[in-house]
Nucleic acid binder design. Sequence first.
DNA 1: TATGAATGAGGCTTCATTCAT
DNA 2: CATGAATGAAGCCTCATTCAT
Lengths: 202, 202, 202, 202
Amino acid sequence: MRKQPRQRRSRRMVDALIDATAQCITQYGVDGTTTPRIAECAGVSVGSLYQYFSDKDALFEALGEKLAHDVARALKRLPLPESANLHDLVGGAIRFGFDMLNSREGLFLELIRNWHRLPTARVADVLQGHFLELARLYFIKHHQKYPIEDLQVRMFIVANSTLFTMVRQVSQDEGLLRQEDVAEGLTNMIVGYLGGETGPSR
Amino acid sequence: MRKQPRQRRSRRMVDALIDATAQCITQYGVDGTTTPRIAECAGVSVGSLYQYFSDKDALFEALGEKLAHDVARALKRLPLPESANLHDLVGGAIRFGFDMLNSREGLFLELIRNWHRLPTARVADVLQGHFLELARLYFIKHHQKYPIEDLQVRMFIVANSTLFTMVRQVSQDEGLLRQEDVAEGLTNMIVGYLGGETGPSR
Amino acid sequence: MRKQPRQRRSRRMVDALIDATAQCITQYGVDGTTTPRIAECAGVSVGSLYQYFSDKDALFEALGEKLAHDVARALKRLPLPESANLHDLVGGAIRFGFDMLNSREGLFLELIRNWHRLPTARVADVLQGHFLELARLYFIKHHQKYPIEDLQVRMFIVANSTLFTMVRQVSQDEGLLRQEDVAEGLTNMIVGYLGGETGPSR
Amino acid sequence: MRKQPRQRRSRRMVDALIDATAQCITQYGVDGTTTPRIAECAGVSVGSLYQYFSDKDALFEALGEKLAHDVARALKRLPLPESANLHDLVGGAIRFGFDMLNSREGLFLELIRNWHRLPTARVADVLQGHFLELARLYFIKHHQKYPIEDLQVRMFIVANSTLFTMVRQVSQDEGLLRQEDVAEGLTNMIVGYLGGETGPSR
DNA sequence: TATGAATGAGGCTTCATTCAT
DNA sequence: CATGAATGAAGCCTCATTCAT
C-alpha cells in the first residue's frame, strides 16, 4: 500500500517513454528514433530512460508488446456477426487492418516495415496466438472438420500476404490503386483460398 | 578515340562499385554496408566512389536497377511451356522466386526486407512493367478477354502477397514450415484468385 | 536513551555499506563498483549511502581502514615462536601475505592493485605503524642493538618489495611460477637483507 | 616509392597520437586520458584517432610498446664497465630506474601504477626478454655456471621488488625517505640475494 | 581524375550525485 | 532520516562526406 505512489510514478514514466518512442517513430521513422530524441520527447533526461529500459531495444520491445495487446483487444471487440459468412468476416478483418495501418499517423505501418530489425519475437507470439485462436473458433463454429493439418501453413500465408500487401498499398504515396479495390481483391483471394477446394491443382 | 579507354575504365569502376555494394550487403547486411567498406571491397578509394555516385543512395539505386534487369532477364528465360496450365505457371514462378531469395547468399532477401529504406522507385517500375507484360501475354494467349479493368489490382495483390510471404518464410531461421508446403499453398491461393470466378463474392 | 537505537542503526548501516563495497569489489572489480550497486548490495538506497558517506571515496577509505585493522589484528595473532629464527619469521609472514591475497575472493589483491587510485593514506599509516612495531619488538628481543637509523628505509623496502611481488605473482593467471618458489625466494632475499651484513658493498 | 609521402604522413599522425596519449597521461593521469582529449591534444579530430587505432586500448598498447623499446635502447646504452662488480651493476640499474621514473613528468610512474589495467602483454615480453638477456650476459661473463634453474624466479622477484618499491618511493609526495637511501638499500638487498649463497636458509 | 586522410556531428550508454517526497 | 527517481555531463565510437594533394 505504501508502494503504490512509487509504482504509479514508475508506471507513468514507463508509459511516457513508450509513448515518446511511438511518437518519435511516427515523426522521424524508426531510423530517426534515437535515445536522446525519445528522452526529449518524453520530457525526461536520457538517464531516466536507462533507468527503466536496459536498452533502446528494450523500449522497442515494450512498445511492440503494448501495441500487440492493443490490437488484440481491438480484435476481440470486433463484431463477428453470428451469421457472418467467410467473405464478410475476412472483409471485416482486412478493413480493420487498413484502419490500423492508417491510424496513429502510420505508426503500425512504420513498425511493420521495419519488422526484421525490431525485437518482434514476443509481439509475433501474441498476435499469432490470437489469430490462431480466432481461426479455431471460426472453424469450430462453422465446420465440424477443419483443416487442422495445414492450418498453420494457411494462416502463415494468409496473414503475411494480407499484411504486407496492405502495407505496400498504404505506403504508396500516390494513390495509384484505390484502397477499396485492394481490400476487395484481397478478400476475394483469401476467401477463395480458405473456403474453397484445397486439393493441389485439379 | 582517346575517350574509349576512359569510358571503359569508368564503366569498370562503376561495375566494381555496384558489385562491391552487393557483396557488402550479403556480408554485413544493409546496415553494415558503409561507404568506406564498399570502396575497399571494390579496391577503390572512397573519393572515387563519390566521383561516380553522388551519394550512397545512388549506389543502392544502381544496384537495384541492375538486379531488376538481371531478374527480368532470368524471368524472360523461364520456360513457359506452351501447354502450361495456370497452376504450373504460377508454381514455376513461385519456385523461381524462392530460388532467387535463396541465391546469392541472401542478397535479394536482405534487399527486399529493407525495401522501404532503399531507393526502389525505379526497380519497382522495371519489375512491375515486366510482370504486367507477362500477364498480358498469358491472358492474350489463353483467354481472348482478360480482365483488363482490375489487372493492375490483381497483379499488385499477387505480387506483393507472394513476395513478402516468401521473404518471411525464408527469413524464419528455424524451419517451422516447410518451404514446399508454403510454395504449394501460395500457388493454390494465387491460382484460385487469378483463374476462378472474379466477381465480388457471390 | 532514545539515541541508542539510532546510533546502533547507523552503525549497522555503515557496516552494511562497507561490507557491500567489499563485496562489489570482489565481484565487479574496483572499476565496476558503482554507488548504486553498493547501495543495492547493502539493501539500502543511494540516498542513505550519501547520508553516511560524503563521497564514494569516503566509502573506500572506510573499507580500507577496516581491512587494515583486520589485518593488523590477524598479524597480532600470528604465532611468533619464541625460538623463531629470522628465516621462519619472514617465511611465516610471507605465507601469511599470500594467504591474504588469495583470501576473500581476491579482495585484497584488487585493492592493492588499485592502490594509487584509492584513498590509502590512513591505511598505510595503520599498517606501517604495525609493521614498525613488530620489527621493533623483534629486534629488541633478538638483538640489543638494532639499526634504528635505517629501520624505516629497510621496512619500506622490505614491505613494498614483498607486497608487490606477491601481488604480481598472484595476478598471473597462468601459473608460470610456483607460489612456493616465489615465497621461498622472497624469504631468502629478505632474510639476507635484514639479517646479514648491512654495510654498503664491501 | 610513391607510397612514401602517405606512409610518412601516416607515421606522423600515429606518432602524434601516441605522443598526445603520453602527454595526456602525464597531465591528466590514465583515468583522465580520454579519446576526445587525446585527439584534441594531438590537434586532430576523434575520427582520425580511430582511423589509426582500432581502440583506445590499441593506443595505450602502442604507447607501451614504444616506451618499452625506448627503455630497452637506453638500457643497451648503459655503460656496463667491464670490471663492474655486481654491486655497481645493480646500483647502476636502480639509479637508471629512478631516473626513468622521475623523467617525462612521471609518465612511466603513472603507467606502471596502472599496470594491471593496461594492455601490457607485449610490453612485458619486450622488457622481460631484455632483462633475461642482460642477466644471461652477466652470468656468462662472470660465472661459468649460473643458476639457470631458478633464474626466472629470481628475475621475477628482483624485477618486481625493485620496480614497485621505486614506484612507491617516487609516488610519496613528501620526501619521507631519501631516494638515495632507498636506492642503496635496494641495491644491497638485490646484491645479497643474487650474489650470495642461495640455499634455503642455513 | 584518383586518392584516402581528415572531419565532426551524433549515436548509445554510464554513473556520481542531488532533491522532492 | 530514508528513499530512489531524476539528472546530465561525459565517455567511447561510427560513418557519410569533403578536399588537399
